[in-house]
Write a protein that binds this DNA or RNA. Structure first.
Lengths: 341, 341
DNA sequence: TTGAAAGCGCTAACAC
DNA sequence: GTGTTAGCGCTTTCAA
């Protein structure tokens, strides 16, 4: 059963196909009489334009590609939310592709998006395969790399220094007087690795030894994983004075496991997370964290892409540092015996 | 600067365009000699096929549309994950559209997906506008409605009885001996409404009065909201004996707020959540919940869609009830003074 | 304001 | 195994 086409509508309305096309795209350019006839025919036939044909003929796709490493994480959900709000409102389709933390899959995602002739690509992260970089650079379309700062951005780069943030979190614990400070993570993707680098830098400056609690096999961050990793550490009899978790979920899990095991936070151990997720402030005890700007990242990326698409000027590489903020809360408050000294 | 086309590749390789097309789609049908030449030309030119042209010419899109009410919720993240795994592996593009809990936006999403000529639509929920239903029914493509059971499925329906699940959670609390049992939610989308219906049914059967803790303005479920709603209730001096939260996040927030306010769970109050999210088992105290099958829903939906697409037989409306399970844990354990009686 | 002709880049169908 | 021809359904000229 052949689908209804523009020609079918034109025949029914007694006009030429191009008139139907105009009614659909710029109704003001058609006289009211014809417009009404066309609208009626569209409705009667249940006509739905074939977007592939439209894209081919106009060589505009009104589609923007977005690559994220996972759909499984609030961080990217918030970022995607902001991107969507901005781009969909401007009449663009957002095509989201998941690279599953793999540079090879990311490369395939880029090829797929270029095949779709997206008009811009917004990609989380700044580490790509050489071919990925080449494809993005040659494509001559706006590219935004997000969440990290790149030493050599492909085009636009909106992010923050993960390393500096990791260093800041660690220094916060060092300033509290702790010496046995652990870094806890489920995997070491590029961003976690950078935070880890920041941790090691801070520890090195303070001449303290590294203490790592890293999952044997890479696992995605979750409350359960934080709980598991802390439990293992405790059973080894190896509990540190303080922990910097790469993620608030891990931190929440660690805190819950502490309670189960009768370890008091912050009296017996201090814990700081990362990202300042919604629940951090209302956790009991409230969770210290590094606030990151996921919404702003998405919002700004959308804005800049739209601006680039609307100006014919070729954009040059530019970098925007959105920063981060240390949010100290109860989970790293000075221990009571310090307070009472 | 015109993009590289298949003809360019054909010219460089000294073959006809159709040979290039074959090398890309069914390489085995081309002799090794030509294949190598074509591959080399593709590489040299950095050729990326135009998918819109391919879709138009072949009238196959290899795209499947998925509509979810929000990207903001683990429930749908898990479901999308399972859908992706199944469909991408089979060579399909998954186009995800967010209806933001609005039936009008859902209708627009359906139109957009039909315009893309997706080969199937998988849609969360069973409540749609009349036009949505009509469009889906007329489109003559596999349609799967998920997460709920429909009295009259459009095509395939994979879900569970939200009402029965709500009833079961409530009955669990009633059996524990509680009489002042509240239902807590941030909004009343169709699924939450059905759980609420189940709650009211159970309360009515037990001849108990309804107690509702519902956000003034609809808000999405979150730990913070659970915390807020409980705080308000407590400040009104209106704390019930037990709470059924529509969502584990709300339940976790309520539990945290209890701790802050010196209210013990389960000694002073019992709490049950919904969905059995990952953290429920490791929360302190561990959280009773209703386990739902998000992964299975997505996995099965993907399987059925692929099966329908591969068989020329027109599928008839079918309904699959994936069920749910009550998972009692510490947060609704019998209170100590009952145990010691 | 409306229409006719041509073509976007690819693939199905058929030949060779 | 390879090529030729003819479109897929729309939009961009350009002309009336």
């Amino acid at each position: 059963m052949p689908r209804i086409t523009l020609d079918d509508v034109a025949n029914l309305a007694g006009v030429s196909p191009i008139t139907v096309s105009r009614v659909l795209r710029k109704p003001d350019a058609v006289s009211p009489g014809l417009r009404l006839r066309v609208d009626a025919a569209v409705k009667e036939l249940g006509y739905v334009p074939n977007i592939a044909a439209s894209r081919l003929a106009s060589s505009r796709t009104h589609a923007i590609g977005v690559i994220v490493p996972t759909l499984y994480n609030v961080i990217f959900a918030e970022y995607l939310f902001a991107l969507h709000e901005g781009l969909v409102a401007a009449g663009f389709q957002v095509i989201v592709v998941n690279s599953r933390y793999s540079e090879i899959e990311e490369e395939n995602a880029i090829k797929a998006l270029l095949g779709q002739r997206v008009e811009a690509i917004i990609i989380a992260g700044t580490h790509h395969t050489p071919l990925s970089r080449q494809l993005l650079a040659q494509a001559r379309l706006p590219v935004v790399e997000t969440f990290e700062l790149s030493p050599n951005p492909i085009d636009l780069n909106i992010g923050m220094s993960q390393e500096h943030a990791g260093q800041t979190a660690t220094q916060h614990l060092i300033e509290r007087g702790f010496r046995r400070i652990a870094f806890l993570t489920g995997n070491l993707d590029h961003r976690a690795q950078s935070r880890f680098d920041g941790y090691r830098l801070a520890m090195q400056e303070a001449e303290l030894p590294n203490l790592e609690i890293i999952a044997e096999r890479p696992r995605h961050s979750s409350v359960v994983l934080g709980s598991d990793l802390f439990a293992m550490t405790h059973e080894r009899g190896d509990v540190p004075e303080a922990i910097f978790c790469t993620d608030d979920n891990l931190a929440l899990g660690a805190m819950q496991e502490c309670r189960k095991r009768g370890i008091r936070v912050p009296d017996d151990i201090s814990i700081i997370g990362f990202h300042d997720l919604e629940f951090a402030a209302c956790a009991a005890p409230s969770l210290s964290s590094i606030a990151t700007r996921r919404f702003e990242t998405g919002k700004l990326a959308a804005e800049r892409v739209l601006a680039a698409l609307n100006s014919s000027v070729v954009s040059r590489a530019e970098q925007i540092d959105l920063g981060f903020a240390l949010i100290p809360r109860e989970s790293t408050a000075i221990r009571s015996y310090f307070v009472h000294t």
